[in-house]
């Protein structure tokens, strides 16, 4: 069974760059994206689009769909930031904030200029930080993220749990898919009632199979000499690239300078 994001992480063109470099790059941009002004945030998002779509060769359509998901949630909450409501007789108190408004009974509903600034900042931050997260997810395989976690001192128990969860989430997902297909061939989702019943049967069955899988996995681990740790070895295959390193560092410094100039100008 293939999971799309996981597959892309293994097949992208930046796969063999050292994961520490990619993670460091994304985290640095994440921090800058949090602090930078809106226009720099958007520059970061565009730059990451280049890294993901052009350099890593992730299909633009897929990247776009992935970005749309969190941004749609954000867009749903934007009206709360953009729209202001005040008492009509207190209009002079907030008139400076009004970009456009209409009276509605005794109230005044308006498009807030402060709200627009805030919405821009929130939207920019959301797009940027989401882009940073997707850069990591799409270019760094999960197992390499786990290796780095171990290197930085993440507790063994946690990293092993994450590994086993990653390993078996595919098994569980495949089992669930097969059960669903089996139910569908027997009209299990024909109407609302049968749908609810079939879903409850699926969940119960999945739980039983998961417990059975757990028992078998325990025996499988024991048969391979499991002690108390999941220790493995691997060949280091990563190749740093000067070209990408220079662009990453140079681009980051440029954005940092822009951010610095913006705040310097604001202070002056």
């Amino acid at each position: 069974m293939h999971h799309q994001i996981d597959s892309l992480a293994y097949t992208n063109r930046l796969r063999y760059l050292p994961p520490e470099h990619k993670l460091g790059f994304a985290i640095a941009l994440f921090l800058l994206g949090y602090l930078a002004p809106t226009f720099v945030k958007l520059l970061i998002a565009v730059w990451l689009w280049v890294w993901v779509v052009v350099y890593a060769r992730i299909p633009a359509q897929i990247y776009g769909k992935l970005l749309v998901l969190p941004i749609s949630f954000l867009l749903l909450s934007l009206p709360a930031l953009l729209i202001g409501i005040g008492a009509l007789n207190h209009l002079p108190n907030f008139a400076a904030d009004v970009l456009y408004g209409v009276p509605v009974g005794s109230l005044y509903v308006y498009l807030s200029s402060q709200g627009c600034v805030q919405a821009g900042m929130v939207l920019g931050r959301a797009i940027t930080l989401t882009s940073c997260m997707y850069f990591i997810l799409l270019t760094v395989p999960f197992v390499e993220i786990l290796r780095i976690l171990r290197q930085v001192g993440c507790p063994e128990l946690l990293s092993e749990l994450l590994l086993l969860m990653y390993r078996f989430i595919f098994v569980i997902a495949e089992t669930a898919t097969e059960l669903l297909a089996a139910q569908q061939t027997r009209f299990g989702y024909g109407n609302w009632r049968s749908q609810m019943r079939s879903l409850s049967l699926l969940v119960g069955h999945l739980l039983r199979r998961t417990l059975a899988n757990y028992r078998e996995l325990s025996l499988g681990l024991a048969s391979r000499g499991y002690g108390s740790e999941l220790r493995v070895w691997h060949t280091a295959r990563h190749r740093p690239s000067w070209r990408y390193a220079i662009e990453a560092i140079g681009g980051y410094l440029f954005l940092l300078i822009l951010t610095g100039l913006h705040y310097w100008t604001a202070l002056c």
């Binding site: 098994v171 999941l230 070895w233």
Partner: peptide, 30 residues
């Protein structure tokens, strides 16, 4: 278990690491 190796009917129950190479190394690391 070093002397007697058992391969289960369902290989899924014995493949515990993330990649092929790591899985091969698992028993040796133990």
């Amino acid at each position: 278990r070093q002397q007697v190796g058992l391969v289960f009917q369902d290989p899924e129950q014995q493949l515990v690491a993330a990649t092929v190479e790591e899985d091969l190394s698992y028993g040796l690391c133990n």
